[in-house]
Design a protein around this nucleic acid. Structure first.
Length: 653
DNA sequence: ATGACCAATTGA
DNA sequence: CAATTGGTCATG
């Protein structure tokens, strides 16, 4: 069968491939030092998610370093693989050579991170690699991204108005590793605050690497405008640019990374800090298995790589508050005088839809007043709870929120016939009946669309702008107008809004983060007001969510929230695994887990598929992940076992 | 997942 | 007795 006598690499020669059958004798020069590469192969089966040994051909020795991407023949077929180790010899006898080298993928540091993420989220190595590393792209022209970068003006110290703010900058200037969470001051420009942190870090080390994480593409633009030399790492970029930027960071040429969630894996050289804005934003959660969350990954990386972690937002999340409570992070908040100025303007209205609802109006009297009074002096921001037209209802008899027994919201089959065809949006049960016996409902939370309509009628002649997820308005000038916005879609007004009205400060669903989300919405609207602008909240003044804004103290609120949740054994003081799949399968896995880990079981909740929750003490979290990993690996051996999806510590449930 | 291999089952 | 089907095993 050996036609010639030449040495060749099988994959290099089409002729060879054609003539030679599998058992061909290939003579390949093998690397002298550490000739064995231990690799992880891209195969979609979890029991194969382990190390395999391959020989390193001398010719590609330097392209098979730890973290490099290669092609190998696995189980007869070519497959992608990542080198995770180089060793002198293998315990295994029949070791095949690597077919070819592809290019760089991970650094030893990010490799360690990817492994840690796999462990924690019970995921497969390549599922995380896919998110962390862009595909190699041949679209390789050099067109550098030239985003208009302003020369950043000398910033006045935005951090001086924070308690311990200046101290934080000093620590960074000394090159210390800090872990901090900041609740951004009213009217502050977060991108300038972040830029200043970078600046301080660079003072101690001009070669410092920094990762700046933001939730979306428009935030990237804001940040890039004030941070020159930054490199964008984001899945929003096209293939070619994404890969080019990745290489720029990998090579060490670019060290300041600005990006969305996947940038948390950027192979930054000399990484000194990860700085994250608006950690409560859902965009930080990856929607693909194993459902990792950039906030947790950032914490993991900060811990493992011993770099600073600084997380900010207009309101404090329960998660970051728990980091403070444990002593891992310092809490940084705005100084009292800065806060007092805003706080004086906050008014909370006692207000139920029933009392004030003669004309189906969503907007209480005092809010009308505030709008009318402030309108001549500039734009007004009206924050609404939900998109859509009529998403929620009240019982007309007792005035309570119309909820299904399962906790789901009630939907109306026929918009024009209240009381008819009421179904639950979660479990689908029909025939709703209130606890008080009532069966009639009326519209409660009317979304942006309806509110905008109503305001347009009331203030005829005043432009009404409507900003929501699909139609975000990013900036408005200082002209008088009314802007109705949902969470996250609030525009920046040139000189701040003349008044801010936060409608519907009440829970529209029952889930882990309902209350937290309300507070976040209120803060993200309230910060848009100019100095002295009235902030009107409609809801119950006694409730904690309103109080948080009235005191301008979201850390206080988050602290209370943590306490409540810890008493209920819920995250962040607990860790949760959500198992989804066939009823019998999820129960089998859950039972097996409980044999070795003390876990509280909730569920199953049955529907199309079944779901169970396994809840453990925080300290047992790693044990839970580990056990689930073992179970998944043994289960995947037998294809008769149906697939069970695991979601660790989801943001909400 | 996918293919190889062996054993049991089916069929003319 | 050959052909087909099914379960087990290994993948370097």
């Amino acid at each position: 069968m050996d036609q010639g006598d030449q040495l060749y690499l099988l994959a290099d020669s089409a002729v060879a491939r054609k003539k030679v059958k599998p058992a061909a004798k290939k003579v390949v020069e093998i690397a002298e030092e550490n000739p064995i590469a231990r690799v992880r192969v891209n195969v979609p089966v979890s029991h194969l998610d382990r190390d395999f040994d391959y020989l390193v051909p001398a010719a590609i020795d330097t392209q098979c370093r730890v973290g490099d991407r290669v092609r190998v023949r696995f189980s007869g077929k070519l497959a992608d693989a990542i080198v995770v180790d180089r060793i002198a010899e293998s315990e295994f006898t029949k070791v095949a050579p690597i077919e070819r080298a592809i290019g760089p993928a991970l650094t030893p540091e990010t490799l360690d991170l990817v492994r840690a993420v796999c462990d924690r989220y019970v995921g497969m190595f390549w599922d995380v690699v896919r998110a962390a590393v862009p595909n190699k792209s041949t679209a390789g022209e050099y067109r550098r991204t030239t985003i208009e970068k302003q020369v950043p003006k000398l910033l006045l110290n935005a951090w001086a108005s924070y308690s311990h703010g200046s101290a934080l900058l000093e620590q960074l200037k000394r090159g210390e590793c800090v872990r901090a969470v900041w609740a951004s001051a009213p009217a502050s420009l977060w991108w300038e605050e972040m830029a200043q942190l970078v600046h301080s870090i660079q003072e101690s080390d001009p070669e410092a690497g920094v990762i700046l994480l933001v939730p979306d593409a428009s935030s990237i633009e804001r940040l890039v405008a004030v941070i020159p030399q930054s490199v964008i790492i984001s899945t929003h970029l096209g293939q070619g640019e994404r890969y080019r930027n990745f290489l720029e960071v990998y090579s060490g040429r670019g060290r300041i990374v600005v990006g969305t969630r996947s940038a948390v894996f950027a192979p930054v050289e000399n990484l000194k800090a990860i700085i994250m804005w608006d950690d409560f934003n859902d965009a930080y959660g990856d929607a693909h298995a194993p459902y990792w969350d950039a906030r947790e990954v950032a914490a993991l990386r900060s811990h493992r790589s011993n770099c600073s972690l600084i997380v900010g937002g207009f309101s404090r999340s329960a998660t970051t508050q728990s980091w403070c409570a444990s002593g891992w992070c310092q809490s940084i908040t705005a100084d009292k005088p800065a806060v007092d100025a805003v706080r004086a303007q906050v008014r909370t209205l006692t207000d139920t839809a029933i009392e004030r609802d003669p004309h189906q109006s969503r907007i209480p009297q005092l809010a009308w007043q505030a709008i009318k009074e402030s309108l001549p002096s500039g734009p007004i921001l009206v924050s609404v709870g939900r998109r859509g037209y009529i998403p929620a209802f009240l019982c007309t008899q007792c005035g309570e929120r119309a909820m299904c027994i399962c906790g789901g919201a009630i939907q109306q089959g026929n918009k024009n016939l209240p009381g008819e065809q009421l179904t639950c949006c979660r479990c689908g049960a029909g025939g709703w009946r209130c606890a008080c016996g009532g069966t009639q409902i009326k519209a409660l939370a009317i979304g942006a669309e309806r509110t905008a309509e109503e305001l347009g009628r009331a203030f005829a002649g005043t432009p009404v702008v409507w900003s929501q997820q699909e139609h975000v308005v990013t900036n408005v000038d200082s002209q008088s107008r009314i802007v109705v916005a949902t969470q996250g879609a609030e525009p920046h007004a040139e000189n701040g809004f003349a008044a801010v009205v936060v409608l519907d400060m009440f829970a529209q669903s029952i889930s882990l983060t309902t209350s937290e989300s309300l507070v976040r919405r209120a803060f993200s609207a309230a910060v848009r007001g100019r100095v002295g602008a009235p902030i009107v909240l409609t809801g119950d003044p006694g409730q904690r969510e309103s109080q948080a804004v009235a005191r301008w103290d979201s850390p206080w609120f988050a602290g209370r929230e943590c306490l409540d949740r810890s008493q209920a054994q819920l995250p962040p003081s607990s860790r949760v695994a959500v198992l989804t799949g066939e009823r019998a399968a999820v129960l089998a896995v859950a039972t097996q887990v409980q044999e070795s880990v003390t876990a509280r079981l909730m569920g199953p909740i049955d529907g199309e598929t079944s779901t169970v929750f396994l809840i453990v003490r925080r300290a047992d979290g790693n044990e839970l992940s580990h056990t689930l990993g073992l179970i998944m690996r043994t289960r995947s051996v037998d294809p008769k076992n149906s697939f069970v999806r695991i979601n660790m510590d989801p943001r909400d449930f």
